[in-house]
């Protein structure tokens, strides 16, 4: 079944077609959400919301449009809304984690039985620094950078999803990389 057939069938309330659409695209949607949220549990929650929205608003979907572009747009918007709603909480957590002043929960603690505990701590810190730096980029730079780096999308695909020109995406990517590099250097100097 092609994407168009699936959409047609879902419009006729075909549950099996909806199941197939979810199974075909769940990896893609979870990956997009995880690229923005950097948390697999949150990414799966948001992915569920994305598919629910697809199901509930399928009648508004134009048949000539691309399903993947629609999925990407909803996933990006829902992920950004989630970040905005939890902004205060997330920023405080990230700053605490980076400065090492937080009280870590059991789940956050690295596995002490692992053969290289220092390496795990170092990896976790590195991941937090990178995520924090990406999250503090300007909104459009963050979207373009995340879609390109986490989802391997071409600049053309990104321009379709964001509804901007190809040259705008190139410019956004250039500025995103420059700013990200600056932010990361700033952290390295603090070490």
């Amino acid at each position: 079944m092609t994407d168009k057939d699936l959409i047609k069938a879902i419009k006729n309330n075909d549950q099996q077609a909806f199941k197939q659409l979810v199974e075909n695209n769940q990896q893609l949607v979870v990956n997009i959400c995880n690229g923005f949220l950097h948390n697999i549990a949150d990414a799966e929650d948001i992915a569920q919301e994305v598919f629910i929205e697809i199901f509930l608003s399928v009648n508004k979907f134009r048949e000539d449009a691309k399903l993947s572009t629609w999925l990407y747009r909803i996933a990006v918007n829902k992920s950004l809304n989630h970040i905005r709603n939890n902004k205060k909480h997330k920023i405080l957590n990230s700053i605490d984690n980076i400065s090492g002043s937080d009280k870590k929960t059991e789940n956050d603690l690295p596995d002490v039985n692992a053969s290289q505990p220092e390496k795990i701590i170092e990896d976790k810190e590195q991941s937090e620094i990178l995520n924090y730096s990406i999250n503090t980029l300007a909104k459009n730079q963050k979207i373009a950078f995340t879609l390109n780096k986490y989802d391997d999308l071409s600049y053309k695909q990104i321009s379709e999803i964001m509804g901007v020109s190809l040259s705008s995406v190139e410019s956004l990517m250039h500025r995103a990389k420059k700013n990200l590099q600056k932010k990361l250097f700033h952290f390295y100097q603090k070490k």
């Binding site: 199941k19 979810v22 199974e23 769940q26 990896q27 979870v30 990956n31 995880n34 690229g35 950097h38 697999i40 990414a43 799966e44 992915a47 569920q48 598919f51 629910i52 199901f55 990896d123 590195q126 991941s127 620094i129 990178l130 780096k149 986490y150 990361l184």
Partner: peptide, 21 residues
């Protein structure tokens, strides 16, 4: 630092995602 992105890419998805939806 940039290698972290490669490690975070394509996480395993929950097989019960559709059931939850």
């Amino acid at each position: 630092s940039l290698n972290v992105i490669e490690k975070e890419k394509n996480p395993k998805t929950n097989p019960y995602l559709y059931t939850r939806i």
